[in-house]
Design a protein around this nucleic acid. Sequence first.
DNA 1: CTTGTCTGATTGTTTTTTTCAATCGGCGAT
DNA 2: ATCGCCGATTGAAAAAAACAATCAGACAAG
Lengths: 313, 313
Amino acid sequence: MTLTELRYIVAVARERHFGRAAASCFVSQPTLSVAVKKLEDELGVTLFERSAGDVTLTPIGERIVEQSQSVLEEVQVIKQLAEQGKDPLAGPLRLGIIYSISPYLLPHLIPALRERAPQMQVLLEEDYTARLAEMLKQGEIDLAIVAEPFHESGVVTQAIYDEPFVVATPKGHPWEKLDHVNSEQLSEENVLLLSPGNCFRDQVLQMCPDLNRESVPAGSSLQRTLQGSSLTTIRHMVAGGIGVTVLPVTSVSPADDALLAIRPFVEPAPTRRVVLAWRKNFPRGAAVEAVRQAVLGAGLTNITYLPEAHASA
Amino acid sequence: MTLTELRYIVAVARERHFGRAAASCFVSQPTLSVAVKKLEDELGVTLFERSAGDVTLTPIGERIVEQSQSVLEEVQVIKQLAEQGKDPLAGPLRLGIIYSISPYLLPHLIPALRERAPQMQVLLEEDYTARLAEMLKQGEIDLAIVAEPFHESGVVTQAIYDEPFVVATPKGHPWEKLDHVNSEQLSEENVLLLSPGNCFRDQVLQMCPDLNRESVPAGSSLQRTLQGSSLTTIRHMVAGGIGVTVLPVTSVSPADDALLAIRPFVEPAPTRRVVLAWRKNFPRGAAVEAVRQAVLGAGLTNITYLPEAHASA
DNA sequence: CTTGTCTGATTGTTTTTTTCAATCGGCGAT
DNA sequence: ATCGCCGATTGAAAAAAACAATCAGACAAG
């Protein structure tokens, strides 16, 4: 049984005439006759009574033609579904973002994305890099905005921008007078870090391994690094004079000026590379590109945008 | 789009593995790969994400596979309908019978048919030959039991039996003493006939044209033939002494002995030929044959069964 | 009765499609 | 680096679909 055969018998039932039915199917009359006969043989029933000048349906033929119409309608639904799903920008895109980017990028990214792909819903997931990697591979999210290093099998990444780190101190802190802070100087201060699992914590530690080396056992009043649960919390702690911290520059807003002193590092300033990541076989490349463009158009300042070439497995 | 392709994608979705899906469809893996790709191209959407060691459905693929399953289920319904309709003895058979056979044959025919084809419903239509012919050609009935002559284009007939006519007189009528009645003798009596339209009336008139020739205008007290609306009515009229009549032998029952005297005609006795008639292209030949066999097995007496060969267009 | 016409069936061939065996190429794991 | 798995690709063979031409039956008109 083929869909073509079903279309043929529906046409014969409609036209009550093999020749006209063939014409309406854009095939020759023998083609249609043979196909109908083939289907009748396969089903083991006679669908049509062919009398001279009048083709009529048998009772069983009537029911089968009716059912065939219903099959063909269901097939049409497949085509409609495909048509709807054709646009890679249509349909929800599940986007994961790490905690240290999400609150600063999303307010700009979402409007930019709305402008470029108004019909694309975005479902957001905020989580740690490791969790996002897992969700990406499991197909629970389609795309992730994370910071390097990020290497997962079956996942490709594309660099979007490098963002420098800056130092945040309380107002009136001696470093406020400096043009640039040296990363070695951090060892002299209480440095507040995000809790383990946040990639930004690891990035800061890698930039300044002294912080790790000189840390003392947990609970000691002497410990040099403290932990905050989010960059916002840490910011408030710094403003309160507990210590200093390192921030990605995109997290700095003009509102911080009232509370904090923000100083750049000496060149070359430490940076982190922010990338888009998606399954290698994720078919909606256009959606990925739309998000990349939206990030580029999000109006982030003090960062270095990277050319398209920066993609890798 | 073909049903095979739909079966393939459903299999891939089920197995999440092209090789296993191919095996479960009893085709080679390239066959399945090519077919899936062809369908994806036709629909313009990617249905599967092929990653190493893991085939997953895209969101649109998921919906399309689901819809495909629904299509395949509808197709199964076609097969089921065909399976149910396969038995030519299943499903109602619309059977038309003329008035002068129906009351005498049906009581025997129905049980005989029930025995031979218990699953076949029979819908009965009782009418004049001309009406039955029309209904047959229009497809309102499938089969008719009528008496010759019966020639309709597109309709074939098969003779079942010849039944002789007999004469019925009131008890005590002079003819009761005769071994045989001659048809010419009928002219001497009031002969009661069925009303026009009943084929049996025509058959009697053809057998004995004198009745027609000698009839006088309607309303005359001299008219030699009277009309009854049914053989039963006529029987009662004869029993009442109004005249004599001619009956087909199958309409004679033992109960008549109490009221009537039944005499045969001199050989060769006039007869009528009872036939089955159906549209030439009526596909349920087995149902026709079942009815024929049931008539043969109905236990009619005093008739001459005819061999199968007596079929004609 | 014959002829012509209409209609679906049949036939033989061409074209298209489907299928398969063999092979490739990418990817991940050992 | 190599091996094994898996889906894609290729080229040839088989199957199916389609068509033009023709046939055969039925009916209607002459």
